[in-house]
């Protein structure tokens, strides 16, 4: 096989695996959008805080799995907090103040993280073995595999919970028709809070699996929000399968364009694709069309 092709394939695989983490963060958008038609513009900050929480717990000499679970619990609490403080009131008043308020909460989160954990990037310890596996000449590191397994695992778990528990079906009912769900005795507010908590949890988990590859730092937040957004919007906010595809595609494109055009350009093609996708198909490639009513 020619080496240039192999290098490209290596890039694509590495990027695609990272892209699954973007898909997981984007999945958080999908969850909250389904429940209450709002998303967290500070989702990247939750990812960062989750990673930092995991880091603190593991430096406190807790076992890896305990730290990750702890980070997820922190993420869930933060997700709930964002909904309560920044989103609920604005949605009741049917205005778009929540966009600003979630940005503001994210701004505070970055400042808090800078002061609590410092501005510099830190490595994130994992129990995974050193070195890499090789498939057909393409090498994959253990943390990269952990991203794929973790993202798939969490998304599958949440999707299963949505289908096979009564609480999950109730959350789906609230997103389909809030009034009708209330009439069935479902407390829609709690269902929306639950979605935000799960969204925060998956963001924090994403943090703990991304951090071993990229390191942890306050600056990771902003670009992650944008990437996850791109994935969510390109895929549409209805399909979790679409998210994975879009995530993998974005990650691979980034790596390949970084390789071909120079590292500064790595994000550019994805962004151009995003603007085009929005313009041509606002509901996303896998999304459903909305009917206007008067």
């Amino acid at each position: 096989m020619n080496t240039e092709f192999l290098a490209l394939a290596q890039m694509a695989v590495g990027g695609g695996l990272m892209g699954m983490a973007y898909a997981l963060v984007a999945y958080g958008f999908q969850l909250t959008h389904a429940a209450g038609k709002a998303v967290n513009f500070g989702q990247g900050e939750l990812v960062m805080l989750g990673a930092f929480a995991g880091l603190s717990l593991s430096t406190a000499a807790l076992p890896y799995w305990v730290s990750v679970s702890g980070a997820m619990a922190v993420g869930a609490a933060l997700g709930w907090f964002v909904e309560r403080t920044a989103v609920r009131l604005a949605l009741q008043q049917r205005n778009e103040g929540w966009i600003l308020l979630t940005i503001i909460v994210g701004l505070f989160a970055v400042s808090a993280a800078e002061n609590i954990w410092g501005r510099e990037d830190k490595p994130f310890p994992t129990p995974w073995p050193e070195g890499a596996l090789e498939f057909f000449g393409i090498s994959v590191t253990w943390p990269e595999l952990a991203i794929a397994a973790g993202a798939l695992g969490i998304m599958t778990l949440v999707e299963l919970a949505k289908r096979y528990t009564m609480a999950g079906i109730a959350v789906q009912a609230v997103s389909a028709d809030q009034d009708a769900a209330e009439l069935c005795g479902i407390r829609s507010r709690s269902a929306i809070s639950l979605s935000w908590a799960i969204s925060g949890m998956s963001a924090a988990f994403a943090g703990t699996i991304i951090a071993p590859v990229t390191t942890v730092g306050p600056t990771m937040a902003a670009s992650l929000t944008l990437k996850a957004f791109s994935v969510a919007v390109v895929a549409g906010l209805d399909s979790s399968f679409g998210l994975l595809l879009a995530g993998i595609a974005l990650g691979a494109t980034e790596n390949i364009s970084g390789f071909l055009l120079g590292s500064g350009w790595r994000e550019a093609p994805g962004l151009i694709l995003l603007i085009l996708a929005l313009a041509l198909r606002p509901q996303g490639l896998f999304g459903k069309k909305i009917i206007r009513k008067v």
Partner: peptide, 17 residues
């Protein structure tokens, strides 16, 4: 042609670009 969060997002992409 977009509304709300989608519009915000496309402007954000433009800015980053």
């Amino acid at each position: 042609r977009l509304e709300g969060p989608q519009f915000a997002l496309s402007t954000l992409s433009f800015a980053t670009l």
